[in-house]
Computed example of a mutant assay.
Amino acid sequence: MMKVLDVKNLKKVYTTRLGAHKVEALKDVNFSVEQGEFIAIMGESGSGKTTLLNILAALDKPTSGKVRLKDVDLNAVPERRIAEFRRNNLGFVFQDFNLLDTLSLKDNILLPLVLAGDKYKTMEEKLMPLAKKLGIAPLLEKYPYEVSGGQKQRAAAARALITNPELVLADEPTGALDSKSSEELLRLFTNINKEGQTILMVTHSVRAASVASRVLFIKDGEVFHQLYRGNAGEEQMYQKISETLTVLAAGGERSA
């Protein structure tokens, strides 16, 4: 298997405005992601999950340590090229969808290709198979405020996938959805992953994490523990994750 992402000795320290107080958001994070994995990252609020995601998304820089996406050190990408690098290599799915209300679903999905300067014919060829697969082909001319939360999140997933990214980063993707829409999105992620797409998802939801092939638990800025699915079913995975979160909350031993 090929490594898509390699995180080594990642540390992030924030200094308060007057420099009087330092906050260590990430202490020493180490893990790697193989091509085709579906990884969930869990941890309590303040554990460092969001900071980690921002660094992986090249939206923030670590204080020390390295993040390599394929063979590229994210720290070595010049500032003027970082947006292009992000667009070419990463797909994003956010809790609040981040769709533009002034654009149709179709134009929202095509936006990364427009920014990349793709030809319209190429864009159309990429759009239709994906829209059909995600069940939103009849909705493409509608605007975000005309569709449900689940449909918005499918459009957001289509926008993330249309560039065929190395890695999809999902931040609480089921957080704003009802249970039926959440289930549909998780099935969708599972199917996309089976087709070979690598996904890294930050979530508070045990249900969402139970569809992943591996779960990383972050506590106090470090990887505290990880669970591999192996042959476990979703119910067994749900149980294992719940037990691990209980140990985590009780301040159990670190076993990454």
Score class of each variant (00 low, 15 high):
residue 95 Q to I: 15
residue 22 K to R: 14
residue 173 P to G: 11
residue 117 G to I: 08
residue 222 E to H: 10
residue 253 E to S: 12
residue 52 L to I: 01
residue 199 I to A: 05
residue 101 D to R: 02
residue 109 I to G: 07
residue 179 S to L: 09
residue 130 L to P: 01
residue 109 I to A: 11
residue 251 G to C: 03
residue 143 Y to S: 00
residue 49 K to W: 04
residue 106 K to I: 03
residue 39 I to G: 07
residue 237 M to P: 01
residue 101 D to G: 07
residue 162 I to K: 14
residue 6 D to E: 15
residue 170 A to I: 14
residue 23 V to K: 12
residue 207 R to D: 08
residue 58 A to D: 02
residue 174 T to W: 09
residue 22 K to Q: 14
residue 209 A to C: 08
residue 211 V to S: 09
residue 118 D to M: 10
residue 173 P to Q: 11
residue 203 T to N: 11
residue 203 T to R: 11
residue 114 V to Y: 09
residue 70 K to C: 03
residue 59 L to M: 15
residue 132 K to R: 15
residue 197 Q to R: 10
residue 6 D to F: 08
residue 86 R to M: 03
residue 230 G to I: 02
residue 173 P to Y: 11
residue 120 Y to L: 12
residue 97 F to G: 01
residue 60 D to F: 08
residue 64 S to Q: 13
residue 68 R to V: 03
residue 25 A to C: 07
residue 229 R to E: 01
residue 199 I to S: 04
residue 29 V to Y: 07
residue 32 S to Q: 15
residue 152 K to F: 12
residue 237 M to I: 06
residue 2 M to L: 09
residue 187 R to D: 14
residue 137 A to I: 04
residue 112 P to G: 04
residue 19 G to N: 07
residue 215 V to P: 00
residue 116 A to I: 03
residue 152 K to M: 13
residue 91 G to E: 04
residue 129 P to L: 06
residue 169 L to M: 10
residue 69 L to K: 04
residue 225 H to L: 00
residue 193 N to V: 14
residue 240 K to F: 01
residue 9 N to C: 00
residue 226 Q to D: 06
residue 210 S to K: 04
residue 55 I to R: 00
residue 141 E to A: 06
residue 183 E to P: 13
residue 43 G to L: 07
residue 243 E to C: 00
residue 90 L to K: 01
residue 198 T to S: 13
residue 221 G to T: 02
residue 19 G to F: 08
residue 43 G to F: 07
residue 26 L to H: 12
residue 171 D to L: 11
residue 73 D to W: 02
residue 167 L to A: 02
residue 217 F to D: 00
residue 118 D to G: 04
residue 248 L to E: 07
residue 125 E to F: 03
residue 117 G to S: 12
residue 124 E to L: 15
residue 159 R to D: 09
residue 108 N to R: 03
residue 178 D to Y: 10
residue 79 E to A: 04
residue 154 R to C: 11
residue 40 A to N: 06
residue 186 L to G: 05
residue 237 M to G: 05
residue 229 R to S: 01
residue 208 A to G: 05
residue 135 G to W: 05
residue 211 V to F: 15
residue 170 A to F: 14
residue 132 K to G: 15
residue 166 E to L: 02
residue 1 M to C: 09
residue 182 S to G: 15
residue 142 K to M: 06
residue 109 I to K: 11
residue 103 L to R: 12
residue 124 E to A: 14
residue 214 R to V: 05
residue 243 E to S: 04
residue 247 V to Q: 15
residue 243 E to K: 04
residue 213 S to E: 15
residue 182 S to H: 14
residue 101 D to W: 02
residue 32 S to D: 15
residue 155 A to Y: 11
residue 148 S to Q: 06
residue 154 R to G: 10
residue 15 T to C: 09
residue 38 F to R: 09
residue 117 G to Q: 11
residue 167 L to W: 05
residue 247 V to H: 08
residue 149 G to L: 13
residue 26 L to Q: 12
residue 141 E to N: 12
residue 113 L to R: 09
residue 247 V to D: 15
residue 210 S to P: 01
residue 109 I to Y: 13
residue 7 V to R: 09
residue 202 V to H: 14
residue 101 D to F: 05
residue 1 M to V: 10
residue 49 K to Y: 02
residue 171 D to Q: 07
residue 192 I to H: 08
residue 244 T to Y: 05
residue 156 A to L: 05
residue 188 L to A: 01
residue 175 G to R: 08
residue 59 L to H: 07
residue 238 Y to G: 00
residue 180 K to T: 12
residue 84 E to G: 00
residue 65 G to F: 04
residue 94 F to L: 09
residue 32 S to H: 15
residue 85 F to H: 01
residue 242 S to A: 11
residue 4 V to T: 06
residue 194 K to T: 08
residue 51 T to Y: 06
